[in-house]
Design a protein around this nucleic acid. Sequence first.
DNA 1: GAGATAGTCAAGTGGATGCTTCAGTGTCGC
DNA 2: GCGACACTGAAGCATCCACTTGACTATCTC
Lengths: 121, 121
Amino acid sequence: MLAYAPDLDRVFQALADPGRRLMVDRLSRGPASVSELGRPLAMTLAAVLQHVQVLEACGLVRSAKLGRTRTCSINPAALRSAESWIADRRTMVERNLDRLGEYLAATADQPDPTSHAEGQQ
Amino acid sequence: MLAYAPDLDRVFQALADPGRRLMVDRLSRGPASVSELGRPLAMTLAAVLQHVQVLEACGLVRSAKLGRTRTCSINPAALRSAESWIADRRTMVERNLDRLGEYLAATADQPDPTSHAEGQQ
DNA sequence: GAGATAGTCAAGTGGATGCTTCAGTGTCGC
DNA sequence: GCGACACTGAAGCATCCACTTGACTATCTC
């Protein structure tokens, strides 16, 4: 029954930060080093690293160290899982709205006043 | 240039909480009252209300009070904006991976050793 | 109208988050 | 070898978050 998904917590939490979204955005164009990711961010390298660790902990990003630079790249699978969680719900919502529309259209001519007060303000 | 989107912060932040995701999931099947949303959640009504307020503040949920009950319903537009932020990046990632694949395939027979050390651990 | 129901407001609390500084460590380039 | 570079770890700190309790307000229901 739709088991509790601990990873989604962390993925959405990770995406909630604008700096981390910027990193994801950058990485979606290709791999980058930690300092490269932090360049547009006006914060310490240490802070950047912490963000990278958050992204890595939730599976959004993978990284490997080569020499003295750590190269990060994105993991599309984690993006996909978050995306489809949302997509599934949105699809359901829209399907229900469509059915509601059909129902309203079908009962529009009938004199049954079972209308809920929808759409305030 | 992809302006800073303050709402996405709050939408992802809202979705980061498993209880709130459960509420969104419930609402994706149709409207519900505050106490109905909180029923499976083992927390105070006051706490449930706070979650609802978070969901409302980011635009994921709308609500209207009728009599003494507040009926909440979901707003698909907010879901859509979060979904497409992710989808855009994921699409970009996958396109780039495809291009990389093509590049590797095209240069596979050439004796140029420009291979990066990918895939650690 | 009295008691139950459904929600609301405000204040407080413990734990997580997002930084910082500082003191390293390992690598690169000359 | 030595200085610069890229990163790492630990500690500290301000703020935010997810609750709780307790007091209160409407609205039903009988």
